[in-house]
């Protein structure tokens, strides 16, 4: 018996050691961002690299001069508009998808698969031409609409899975008592699914905040988000590593906070479209 216990301790020790090695590998790029963000430009690009060097907040002041702060504001605006639109349209649709049989139900399921399989590069040019005709290129409205391409099916699917977990009997009881379908949704189903909806919202926000490809093509000078803006620190012949790392830090920190909040919903979000509905 003691032999088994000793072996168990051995196994767990090896496990912790390997996990620690893994965390170091995961941590090194983050450490680079953190250290470089507070380096003087001379130290940031010194050869050989200096791991530790004099501390400065100059890079963050550079961010301001480069218009990066405006692009962070654009990122925030787009994140909020995308989250509001996605949840506003997606959650009721997810409810309908979870509860009813109606025309278009199969279409929704097919769409999630489709939107996950087709790379945006395939339809971005027609979308650009389309938006050009309606004057939507370079506007928040246009960008938000374009962000919905991947995120709306995701939100519908995710919230449907949360609604499916709520026993239908509760809504049925309310209906017997005279509540309309809409009342059953707003008063019973939605409050019960709220924790799920919140984590879907956070995942949507993280995805919108991180989006690069769509604004690269559809954003204008005044609507460029920080993901596209940060690339401006990569010049033709030199890269401002310090300012870039400072920008990266500004992009990463809010997401880490959101990740801690959404930890539970995260797993479900990643498997969306994988589990048969």
């Amino acid at each position: 018996m003691t032999g088994i216990r000793a072996r168990r301790v051995q196994v767990e020790t090896v496990r912790m050691l390997l996990l620690a090695v893994g965390l170091v590998l995961i941590g090194v790029p983050f450490l680079w961002i953190l250290l470089t963000a507070f380096k003087r430009p001379v130290d940031a690009s010194s050869v050989p690299p200096e791991i530790f060097s004099p501390f400065t907040t100059r890079n963050f002041r550079d961010l301001n001069q480069n218009g990066f702060v405006d692009s962070l504001a654009n990122s925030a605006i787009l994140t909020v508009t995308t989250m509001v639109c996605t949840l506003g349209f997606g959650v009721p649709a997810g409810y309908a998808f979870a509860r009813g049989r109606f025309r278009g139900r199969w279409f929704l399921g097919g769409f999630l698969l489709f939107s996950r399989m087709v790379p945006p590069v395939v339809f971005i040019i027609p979308l650009f031409l389309f938006f050009n005709d309606f004057g939507l290129v370079g506007t928040y409205t246009g960008l938000t609409l374009a962000y919905l391409t991947g995120l709306l099916p995701f939100a519908v699917w995710m919230s449907a899975s949360y609604f499916q977990d709520i026993p239908i009997e509760l809504e049925e009881a309310a209906r017997v008592d005279g509540a309309s379908r809409a009342q059953a949704f707003f008063r019973i189903a939605l409050p019960l699914a709220l924790p799920g909806v919140v984590s879907v919202g956070l995942l949507i926000a993280i995805a919108a905040w991180s989006e690069y490809f769509i604004p690269l093509i559809l954003a204008g000078p005044s609507t460029t988000p920080a993901t596209v803006g940060i690339v401006s620190f990569v010049g033709v012949d030199s890269i401002n590593w310090g300012a870039m790392a400072a920008g990266a830090l500004a992009l990463v920190v809010p997401v880490f906070l959101a990740t801690l909040l959404a930890q539970r919903g995260l797993l479900r979000g990643l498997t969306a479209g994988a589990v048969k509905g």
Binding site: F89, G90, P92, A93, Y95, A96, F97, R99, G100, F102, R103, G104, R105, F107, L108, F111, F114, S115, V118, V122, F123, I124, P126, L127, F130, L145, A146, L148, T149, L152, P153, V156, S180, R181, A182, F185
Partner: peptide, 21 residues
């Protein structure tokens, strides 16, 4: 209600993904 809840989403998907595709 279910139709009203779902069709706006379907229309948006149609407009921004299916048609451009």
């Amino acid at each position: 209600f279910l139709l009203a809840a779902s069709w706006p989403s379907l229309l948006i998907m149609l407009a921004v993904t299916a048609v451009p595709f």
